[in-house]
Each structure stands twice: as structure tokens, then as C-alpha cells.
């Protein structure tokens, strides 16, 4: 449980310490990539909680989604069309859905645990 959080902390501190800055032009791509990464991450957590987690789906989904989102943004820039909004919309909706499912599962687990403990007493 703590290892992934440690990883997150490590990544953040690495990024902050390295002091790398993305040029303004590519800011859009990075932000959309972050959104895609979040979407995959929460999807992974949900899948894990639902016991349908698959390693390959998770890892490939992570990189593929990021690339797809960046590609959409890139094409959008060159077509003069805000295609990245499509990615923002899709990922945003999915993010909310995933988080909602995670919340329900956790709530269900919590209530069942509470019932168990009360019946045990």
C-alpha cells in the first residue's frame, strides 16, 4: 500500500529537484498527458478493487492513452481545431466515473466490515 505512494513522492521530488522546464508550446501536451495518466491510474485502482485487474492492460493503457492524448492535441494544433478538448472531455468523464466506482466499492467494503464487526460482538 505504501510503496506506490512512495513512488509518487519519489517522482514528485525528482521532478522538482531536477528543475526541468517544459517549453510553453508543449505545456498543453504535458497537461493532457497528466490527465490521461490519472485516468489510467484510477482505472487501474478500480479494476484492482473489482478484481478484474490485468497487468498488461494497465501498463499498455497507461502509455497508449498518454500517447493518444498527446497525438490528438498535436493533430488538433495542426488542424486548427481544439481536438485536445475531446481528450479532456473523455478522460474527465472517465475519471469521474472511475472515482465514483472506487468510492462505492470502498463504501460497500467499509459498511460490510462494520456489519461484520458488530455481528462478531
Amino acid at each position: 500500500m505504501w510503496l506506490p505512494l512512495l513512488g509518487l513522492l519519489l517522482g514528485v521530488s525528482l521532478g522538482l529537484l531536477s528543475d526541468i522546464q517544459i517549453p510553453q508550446v508543449y505545456n498543453n501536451y504535458l497537461s493532457i498527458a497528466i490527465l490521461a495518466a490519472f485516468d489510467t491510474l484510477f482505472g487501474g485502482i478500480r479494476a484492482h478493487l473489482q478484481q478484474v485487474y490485468d497487468d498488461r492492460v494497465f501498463v499498455s493503457g497507461f502509455f497508449f492513452n498518454i500517447l493518444l492524448a498527446a497525438a490528438l492535441a498535436f493533430i488538433g494544433v495542426h488542424l486548427g481545431l481544439d481536438l485536445y478538448l475531446a481528450a479532456v472531455f473523455a478522460f474527465g468523464v472517465r475519471l469521474f466515473q472511475n472515482i465514483a466506482v472506487i468510492r462505492r466499492i470502498l463504501l460497500a467494503k467499509w459498511t460490510s466490515r462494520k456489519q461484520n464487526s458488530s455481528t462478531n460482538v
Binding site: L10, G11, V12, L14, I22, A33, F38, H48
Partner: peptide, 22 residues
């Protein structure tokens, strides 16, 4: 699974920090 999650979270954290920096 834990290792993969950790790695992916590390990448996410790195990207977040980069965005914050920029």
C-alpha cells in the same frame, strides 16, 4: 502489481512536478 503501480505513480509524479515547474 505493486512494483508496476509504483513505477507508474513515479512517472505520474514526475510529470506533475514538471508541469508545476513549467
Amino acid at each position: 502489481v505493486n512494483w508496476k503501480f509504483t513505477l507508474i505513480l513515479c512517472i505520474v509524479g514526475f510529470m506533475l512536478a514538471l508541469q508545476y515547474n513549467s
